[in-house]
Amino acid sequence: MIGIPVTGLLWSLAVVWLNTEQLATAGVLPTQAFMVVALGGLTQTIALWAGFSAVLWAMVRAFGAHLPFTELFTLICSASLPLWVGAPALAYCLYSGKSLVSVAGLISMLSLCAFLYTAARLLAPRLSWSILRSVGAVSSAAIFLFSFTFLNN
């Protein structure tokens, strides 16, 4: 159950590291900044974890299976290892002014794909599904969330 919280901490660490100049100019110690940013980073990643798990839970039901939410919540956390690389890479893109069409952007996109595929690989045997069906459910959840995000911006 530590995969997603670690992702949030790594995101927060990258954000603080990328803003050390501004923090020094403002007279804020990096440790103080990390505590504040980590609180926000952890809250954000846990909210994303819960949201993705809820949408995936609905997609699993739409694809004809039943899985307790707590099991799915744990499964998503277990799939999060690729995000340990992707979250800091995305923070680098966002806070350094680099485009998502960069090495860091590519790393963040590949880690997201690896996370989604890992989630599908973990979901398939738990539900006795083929990998294709599992990828369909996970992809549907991801597409729904991406669409929701972009339509609201």
Rank of each mutant, 00 (worst) to 15 (best):
V28P: 02
L9R: 07
G41H: 06
P5A: 07
L23Y: 02
V60G: 03
V28R: 04
S53V: 07
Q22M: 13
I2Y: 06
E71L: 15
L56W: 02
A65E: 15
M35S: 14
P30I: 04
G64I: 02
T7A: 15
V16H: 01
V36G: 04
I2N: 08
T20H: 12
L23Q: 04
T43F: 11
W11A: 13
V60D: 13
A47T: 10
A58W: 13
Q32T: 14
E21C: 06
A47F: 09
M35Q: 12
A38L: 05
S53H: 03
G3A: 06
A54Q: 11
G3T: 05
H66Q: 14
E21V: 10
A62I: 09
F34S: 00
L48R: 11
P30G: 05
A33T: 00
A47D: 05
W17A: 15
Q44L: 15
W57Q: 08
E71M: 13
G3E: 00
L56R: 02
T70R: 15
L23T: 00
F52Y: 06
A58M: 14
G8C: 04
S53G: 10
V55W: 03
M1N: 07
L10I: 08
L9I: 14
G64T: 01
T43L: 12
T70A: 14
I46S: 09
V37S: 05
Q44H: 11
L23E: 05
V15T: 08
I4D: 01
M59P: 01
M59R: 00
W57T: 07
M1Y: 06
W49N: 01
T43V: 08
L56P: 01
A14M: 03
W57A: 14
W11F: 15
L18S: 09
T20R: 15
L10Q: 01
I2V: 10
H66W: 11
L72K: 02
S12P: 06
N19F: 05
T45M: 14
Q32H: 11
T7G: 09
A50N: 05
L39R: 12
L67T: 01
S53K: 06
L72P: 00
L18A: 13
G64D: 12
G8P: 02
